[in-house]
């Protein structure tokens, strides 16, 4: 039974990926991309990786989908219809050939990979007692490989800064669109629940799937929903408070890393404090990541309507 389901899932995944790439209709392509993201998160759940499934559904399908739809709306206002150029057949064949060779090479590399000499899962198991948390993914993300996460947050912050630097700040035309009562009611009902869910995900991170990234994605989605319902203004440019919020998580993480560096090693928490420190870092990261993710949407949409 589950074999039938898995086969169907893989087939629909491939089909939606193909449709998303092959169609000449941009709206269709974006919708198929969102469908692909949701199916992908289902596939991660089937593979027993709920952490990745949550992130894929929230960020891969939800937030990226919203950004793509928004970009589509802006480009529809400016671009002429039918400007999507056809790619020459020869070029397409070349891309297909290269991709196929690459895919075959990857499959061979995975199938014939030598067995790893270091048994990472057993090392993680052996050190769980010192990590301060009981969920292995959180232990790896924020303790054993904390510096990876530190750099990851830095990359996200840099992406937002880059976006702010490239897009020149322009006066925003105040929208006169009346607030839609139905959408506003939905937002008013859902946003408190979303905040509750985010707090739960943050708290759950230390003993089950969840954590800062998932909580931040939910909070960011709440912000985007409020904006779409007309209850939250688009952000023009980050003011003092917003700048503080955007960078607080990274600054907190970095300063803790710097303090711990004086104790001997980068991000090696004293086992007694590990749990509390991880929760502190995750709380800071939730705030900042949610502002960064929401900012990607709200700061871009603040420039809408400018010719």
């Amino acid at each position: 039974m589950s074999l039938i389901f898995d086969t169907l899932l893989v087939a629909t995944l491939l089909w939606s990926a193909w449709r998303s790439l092959a169609t000449s209709d941009l709206v269709h392509a974006v919708v198929m991309f969102i469908v692909f993201g949701l199916l992908m998160s289902l596939a991660w759940a089937r593979l027993g990786a709920p952490d990745i499934a949550l992130a894929e559904a929230a960020i891969g399908a939800g937030l990226t989908g919203a950004l793509l739809l928004d970009a589509l709306r802006v480009s529809n206002q400016t671009a002429q219809p039918g400007s999507l150029a056809k790619i020459p057949a020869l070029q397409r064949m070349a891309v297909l050939l290269i991709s196929t060779v690459l895919a075959i090479g990857l499959i061979i590399a995975v199938l014939y990979a030598p067995l790893p000499s270091i048994q990472l899962p057993s090392m993680v198991e052996a050190n769980m007692a010192q990590s301060g948390v009981t969920h292995t993914v959180t232990a790896v993300l924020l303790n054993f490989r904390g510096y990876d996460t530190l750099l990851e947050v830095a990359v996200l912050l840099l992406a937002l800064l880059g976006m702010l630097a490239v897009a020149p700040a322009r006066p925003v035309s105040v929208s006169h669109v009346p607030i839609d009562p139905v959408l506003a009611t939905l937002a008013r009902l859902l946003v408190p629940l979303m905040i509750l869910t985010a707090c739960y995900l943050l708290w759950a991170g230390d003993h089950r799937p969840g954590g800062a990234f998932q909580a931040a994605a939910v909070l960011a989605a709440a912000g985007v929903l409020l904006h779409l319902a007309g209850l939250l203004q688009a952000w023009i440019r980050p003011g003092q408070l917003l700048r503080l919020g955007l960078s607080a998580g990274f600054v907190l993480f970095l300063s803790l890393a710097a303090i711990l560096l004086t104790e001997g090693a980068l991000l090696r928490y004293p086992p007694v404090w590990a749990g509390a420190l991880i929760l502190l870092i995750e709380a800071g990261l939730t705030l900042s990541l949610s502002l960064i993710l929401a900012g990607l949407f709200l700061l871009l949409s603040g420039r809408r309507g400018v010719p």
């Binding site: 839609d180 139905v182 959408l183 009611t185 939905l186 009902l189 859902l190 629940l193």
Partner: peptide
Amino acid sequence: PLVLMASATVSYSIAR
């Protein structure tokens, strides 16, 4: 009820 709320709002938005 959560899906009911969301789907009602979405279909209303599409229709509008």
